[in-house]
Amino acid sequence: MTDDAAPALPKSLAEIREDFLALSESERLQLLLEFSRELPDLPERYAAAPGMLEKVEECQSPVRAFAEVSDGVVHFYATAPQEAPTTRGFASILAQGLSGLTPQQVLDVPEEFPLQLGLTRAVSVLRLNGMAGMLTRAKRQVVEQLAAA
């Protein structure tokens, strides 16, 4: 499939990608660290029962995430330890970029989105795989909720 045939990246994720690509490699890492400080807090229903969020096995750090479909809109929630800023940054990018999208927009996000941020030389492949794991889970969770509805 060519890029022309692929669905356009949702505006929220396209803007995040553009922000990263406008910077030098070292500045991209700084932006990722900024995102790590902006990971939204969990809603009380998840904060009180973090086991409701799915463990992301691909992450080296203990990360839990859940994509919730409510009234035709996706909300992505994640937890990641403060001492894992790269992982927190990736979780924050997805929380900010996926939340508010329709289920179809989330399903259309390309699997290679983590690689499109220009961080392949600044961040280990294992960490990028962690972000890909979060995205894959979000998509699967959306599909499961749509099937159950």
Rank of each mutant, 00 (worst) to 15 (best):
D3L: 11
D3C: 13
D3M: 09
D4G: 13
D4C: 12
A5F: 11
A5G: 13
A6M: 09
P7R: 01
A8H: 12
L9K: 03
P10N: 07
K11F: 15
A14K: 07
E15T: 02
E15V: 04
E15S: 11
I16Y: 01
D19F: 02
F20V: 04
A22P: 00
A22R: 05
L23S: 01
L23C: 02
S24Y: 03
S24M: 08
E25Y: 09
E25V: 06
E25A: 10
S26V: 07
E27L: 08
E27C: 04
E27V: 02
R28F: 00
Q30T: 02
E34I: 07
F35R: 07
R37A: 14
E38K: 14
L39S: 08
D41C: 15
D41K: 14
A47G: 12
A48M: 12
G51D: 12
L53K: 06
L53I: 10
E54R: 14
K55I: 14
K55R: 15
V56K: 09
Q60W: 15
S61Y: 14
P62D: 15
P62Q: 15
V63K: 10
V63F: 10
V63S: 09
V63R: 10
R64H: 14
A65E: 12
F66C: 15
F66E: 13
A67H: 10
G72A: 07
V73W: 11
H75Y: 14
F76V: 02
Y77G: 04
T79I: 05
P81C: 03
P81K: 05
A84F: 02
A84C: 05
P85Y: 02
R88C: 00
F90G: 01
A91L: 10
I93E: 00
L94A: 03
Q96M: 14
Q96A: 12
L98D: 02
G100C: 08
L101K: 02
L101C: 01
Q104L: 08
V109C: 07
P110Y: 00
E112M: 09
G118D: 05
G118Q: 04
L119E: 00
T120P: 03
T120E: 08
R121I: 05
V123W: 01
V125S: 13
L126N: 12
R127H: 04
R127Y: 05
N129Y: 07
M134D: 03
L135P: 02
L135K: 01
L135C: 07
T136I: 11
T136P: 04
R137D: 09
R137K: 15
A138I: 07
A138D: 09
K139W: 08
K139A: 05
R140A: 06
Q141V: 04
Q141C: 07
V142W: 04
V143S: 10
E144V: 04
E144L: 07
Q145F: 03
Q145E: 09
A148T: 01
